[in-house]
Computed example of a mutant assay.
Amino acid sequence: MAKKVVVLLVVLIFCLILLAACGQKGVENKKIGDINIEIIEPDSLVDNLQSWYKDAYKEKFSHSVSYIDGYKYVLICAGEMPTAGYEIDLIDAKKENGAIVFYAKLIVPEQDKITTDVITYPHILFRVKEKDEVSIRAELDMSGIVSNQSISDNYVGLRGIYIGLADSNSVEIDIDPSFEFPGNGSSVVFKLTDSVIAYFNKDNSEYKEFKNNELVEFDCLRTAEGLWEITKITKITDSLQEESINGEYVGQADANSVEINIEGIPETFRLSDHVKYDIELNEIETGTKVMVRFIQEAGVRTITNIETAIN
């Protein structure tokens, strides 16, 4: 009798192990830095997250966060790549100023390695057991593309959002994802030529007072040291009048735009990368009254700043 009980217990334990394994299908537990994460296979997502994933995974550098059932689901994407062989590797994770920041790197195929000639969208999907109010950011290093692919040394007419001075000789700009540029869709630090530095020196007669979150157009070249250097920069708002409007925040229409109720009518506005981060960081809720500043070009309204309206 005792022998039968032991056998039954062994069978029961084995079944429980199988059930646990089935429950974790499509999930891989890892520790990145000090943060425990679970890497997710997209096929294992529930329906509402499947829709979120399909809308976002092809975007050029973006990180999206969706909260459900006590988890933060994070998707880091590199955008369209010309062949197979590209991967995103999570390098580190840190808690900074109440937020969790994930550091990732795009791994590119070796130049002499044979890869399938097919368009791919490298990305990584994972979740973190955290409260909804915990903000999550990601930084993606795409420098491997610069060293591994033949790229132009000169770019003319690039556009982006001016973030601010990185130091006395360089600036940080969020490159518009629609422009072909190494690492576009993310912030890039550019050195300034001597003639351009004058625009940022308050004591110089050529000072132009560039403001944070301002849309800019610029030319740049790559130096012999491999650094990007701006040779010309202008404010797009010099030729495009910035407008402002009050409304009620509805939510994101897709990964790159939001809906704002203007006098009861939902209208769509495009988001700059910097404003995307502001919305995520401040976690603007549906129904919140907001003041939006934007410019309009070719029928497209791009938000340059969004603030919670003061009643």
Score class of each variant (00 low, 15 high):
residue 35 I to K: 06
residue 247 G to E: 09
residue 251 G to N: 10
residue 236 I to F: 01
residue 229 E to Y: 00
residue 201 N to C: 05
residue 135 S to R: 11
residue 115 T to V: 15
residue 280 E to H: 04
residue 113 K to S: 05
residue 54 K to C: 07
residue 231 T to K: 12
residue 84 A to G: 09
residue 309 A to C: 02
residue 261 N to T: 05
residue 91 I to F: 10
residue 212 N to T: 15
residue 287 G to W: 13
residue 211 K to T: 11
residue 121 Y to T: 08
residue 294 F to Y: 15
residue 231 T to P: 01
residue 26 G to P: 07
residue 203 D to K: 09
residue 195 S to K: 08
residue 269 F to W: 06
residue 68 I to G: 07
residue 11 V to F: 09
residue 98 G to S: 06
residue 288 T to G: 09
residue 250 V to L: 11
residue 64 S to Y: 00
residue 156 V to M: 12
residue 49 L to I: 13
residue 110 E to W: 05
residue 27 V to M: 12
residue 105 K to Y: 02
residue 48 N to T: 11
residue 180 E to F: 04
residue 29 N to P: 00
residue 177 P to L: 04
residue 71 Y to G: 02
residue 38 E to D: 12
residue 113 K to A: 03
residue 227 L to W: 02
residue 300 V to F: 01
residue 293 R to Y: 10
residue 84 A to W: 09
residue 146 V to N: 03
residue 89 D to Q: 13
residue 145 I to T: 11
residue 205 S to N: 06
residue 121 Y to M: 04
residue 226 G to Q: 12
residue 225 E to V: 09
residue 16 L to S: 05
residue 176 D to H: 11
residue 177 P to S: 12
residue 78 A to R: 02
residue 154 N to D: 13
residue 17 I to C: 05
residue 287 G to C: 14
residue 228 W to H: 04
residue 206 E to V: 07
residue 257 S to H: 14
residue 186 S to V: 11
residue 291 M to T: 12
residue 191 K to H: 06
residue 310 I to S: 02
residue 30 K to T: 11
residue 126 F to N: 09
residue 166 A to C: 11
residue 276 K to C: 14
residue 12 L to K: 00
residue 52 W to G: 01
residue 50 Q to M: 11
residue 128 V to A: 14
residue 249 Y to T: 08
residue 42 P to E: 08
residue 31 K to Y: 02
residue 87 E to T: 01
residue 63 H to I: 09
residue 251 G to P: 15
residue 229 E to N: 01
residue 177 P to M: 04
residue 284 I to M: 03
residue 35 I to R: 03
residue 154 N to K: 15
residue 276 K to V: 12
residue 215 L to V: 10
residue 66 S to T: 14
residue 205 S to E: 10
residue 42 P to T: 06
residue 182 P to T: 13
residue 112 D to G: 00
residue 162 Y to D: 09
residue 27 V to Y: 05
residue 23 G to T: 08
residue 62 S to C: 04
residue 130 E to S: 15
residue 33 G to Y: 07
residue 37 I to R: 06
residue 38 E to C: 03
residue 15 C to Q: 03
residue 208 K to N: 06
residue 292 V to Q: 05
residue 78 A to N: 02
residue 237 T to Y: 01
residue 22 C to T: 01
residue 72 K to A: 08
residue 12 L to G: 02
residue 37 I to F: 03
residue 44 S to C: 05
residue 255 A to H: 13
residue 180 E to T: 09
residue 203 D to C: 03
residue 25 K to S: 04
residue 158 L to F: 05
residue 8 L to P: 03
residue 67 Y to L: 13
residue 74 V to E: 14
residue 24 Q to G: 05
residue 49 L to T: 09
residue 99 A to D: 15
residue 94 K to T: 12
residue 48 N to L: 09
residue 213 N to P: 12
residue 166 A to D: 14
residue 195 S to P: 08
residue 300 V to Y: 01
residue 222 R to M: 15
residue 310 I to D: 04
residue 42 P to Q: 06
residue 218 F to S: 04
residue 104 A to P: 03
residue 103 Y to T: 15
residue 261 N to Q: 05
residue 89 D to Y: 10
residue 79 G to R: 13
